[in-house]
Nucleic acid binder design. Structure first.
Lengths: 348, 348
DNA sequence: TTTTAACACGCAAACGTTTTCGTGACTTTC
DNA sequence: GAAAGTCACGAAAACGTTTGCGTGTTAAAA
């Protein structure tokens, strides 16, 4: 077992200086043809590769981007990562991941761990706890140190940085319009509490679609779940509440849910109550997940193009990393990704 | 915007040497109490953090581990990552990911990219293409350079390194025994072609369970799918073949599938043919996925404990990284993770 | 033959750390 | 009052690169 070979070792072996070796490998015209030939042959033989860490230190550039997300076992986020990795790799960058697990402190720790030289910039989506606490000092400190940040999906306007978001408002609106045009008269909304901007916007889309179609929104048809609970408990509670909703309003003939699990639960409860989807009740969910495609009936969804979000975020970040930082006149962009209604069996 | 502060800047500011600053921050007893106090106060004020890259270079240690997987948008792999990240973080390591996308060349490129100093060791699962080509030179070269590798799930015995695998044989065997004890007499197996060791072992488990229960395996009840096809095409073909199988053997009353999609497809086809799951036909799938839990009927599965695999792999790797490399008498371990039968509605 | 130019290479600094060793200024000891 | 010891700090090397500049040797020009 031999360690990786360095310039120094090649230099010693060939009895030239380190700089000569370095230049020879770059075909510098300062170096004679036979020295170049000799060095390159030797380097190839020993499979020389420059040490990334040394390069990073010298260039003050790591060619690595950090991505911090609340959870990885989640289709939306893993698709985003795939997108990030795709363009990062194409543009010569590595990707290092940190999971906040929806915790504020883990988010802070992870960011500090990476911000000390390990990466050139961040792509991140805020944890729920951070959204609740509204404490953004770690983002601002990071950016003050000259490290660019691109946020995606879960963003807040208080933070000045590049962002990639889904068009939640219109995605929701289109979905509800679809239900309306499919003759639904009483459309329920199943959503989360409003502290996540994403949920708020989807609710607004729902309301606007109703109003534009002269349907008066009814507060009783809106179910707001507290999603900070434990997952299992949450699911049971969810089903119970949906059942209650359906029983209290037998005329509900359409459901728009802000995520996959809510939509699936609605279908499950409906079936249990002897209702047929889509004949008695039509359901649309806002999601990119796998469940929709394989459920029975398969679920009509508002697709978020998660992978595309990742790609756009990575491009945005790398662009920023690679452009000269010009004065204080920095411009921040917000890229909006359009949603797409994927029609399946849960709607007519 | 100020850049991150360095020892040199603190030294200049306080009019002491760099070494004094460094020592003062470490409470060295070489340094007087007031100098220590002064330096630490200043460092705190400016939020000094040592530069990771410089440390990595100096210590020849990055405290980062690389993980290379075929695909990230996949429950099994993302759960493994979560496990890896969990213990890596706990032990002071970062995780950098590379996706091979099931391609041999991408696997090689990714490994080379990371092997040049960026990380201290690899955790990886082989791409299908690598398994097919049986070209393992990149693993061996990496290990020859003193970089440890831990493989998980998809492994081959030709490569000498630490491994974490699922007990595929017994997992499959237990599942089939469950079907047998549930009175199934004609159990079909839906699997992939044999080049992945994992599939081969599961098939063996299936066979052994039958034989131990005096049931003669019938080759016609074994469906081997070619999973190198395009996903969509694959799925259609899969359903067609399952339907054909069911029609040709009306007495099939149990199905064991080596993955989630195969199991779900089997249930789907069964339902389409008017068969009731689990009354007419019982199904068990080998998987950790989400679909099983939310399908109707929910699917009984052989759970692989993916997160635990990730945790064990990370521990194994970090242990190896942190122990002195003692001579040529290196020992490699293979950790076997036991499976667990999670009973749901698709079995009686 | 002397001056100039081209060539081929080495030196050294820099990136930000850590750590060994050396040293000047005091203090203690005899 | 001289020798020895303690204290507090700085210089320098090392990790592995890249690159501007200096320099000795040779060849071409005057």
């Amino acid at each position: 077992m031999r360690r990786k070979i360095t310039l120094k070792q090649i230099a010693r072996e060939l009895d030239v200086s380190i700089s000569t070796v370095s230049k020879a490998l770059k075909n510098s015209k300062e170096i004679s043809a036979d020295t170049i030939q000799k060095v390159q042959a030797f380097a190839k033989l020993y499979n020389y590769r420059p040490n990334n860490i040394a390069l990073s230190l010298k260039n003050r550039k790591t060619n690595t981007i950090g991505i911090i997300i609340p959870e990885i076992v989640h289709h939306f986020f893993s698709k985003v990562i795939r997108g990030v990795e795709l363009v990062a790799n194409k543009r010569g960058y590595n990707v290092i991941i940190g999971l906040s697990n929806e915790s504020f402190s883990k988010e802070v720790i992870n960011m500090e761990m990476l911000a000390n030289g390990s990466i050139d910039g961040f792509i991140l989506s805020m944890s729920k706890e951070t959204l609740l606490q509204q404490d953004y000092h770690h983002y601002n400190e990071t950016m003050n140190q000259g490290m660019p940040i691109v946020m995606f999906d879960r963003v807040v306007s208080d933070i000045k940085c590049d962002k990639v978001i889904v068009d939640d408002f219109n995605g929701a609106k289109n979905a509800v319009e679809k239900l309306i045009s499919n003759q639904c008269k009483h459309i329920a909304l199943i959503t989360t509490k409003d502290y996540v901007s994403v949920g708020r916007l989807r609710t607004q889309g729902y309301l606007e679609a109703l109003e534009e179609n002269k349907i008066t929104p009814q507060a009783e048809l809106i179910l707001k779940m507290d999603d900070t609970l434990d997952y299992e408990v949450h699911l049971e509670k969810l089903e119970a509440e949906i059942e209650q909703l359906f029983k209290a309003h037998k005329n509900i003939d359409g459901v728009f849910a802000v995520n996959e699990l809510y939509a699936l639960s609605a279908m499950k409860v409906a079936r249990r109550m002897g209702l047929n989807v889509p004949n008695d009740i039509q359901v649309i969910g806002f999601t990119d997940g796998v469940l929709s495609k394989h459920s029975t009936p398969s679920l009509t969804t508002v697709s978020q193009h998660a992978q595309l979000m990742g790609e756009r975020a990575a491009d945005l970040l790398i662009d920023k990393i690679e452009t000269e930082f010009n004065a204080e006149e920095e411009q921040f962009q917000t890229v909006v990704i359009n949603t797409e209604l994927v029609e399946r069996e849960s709607t007519k």
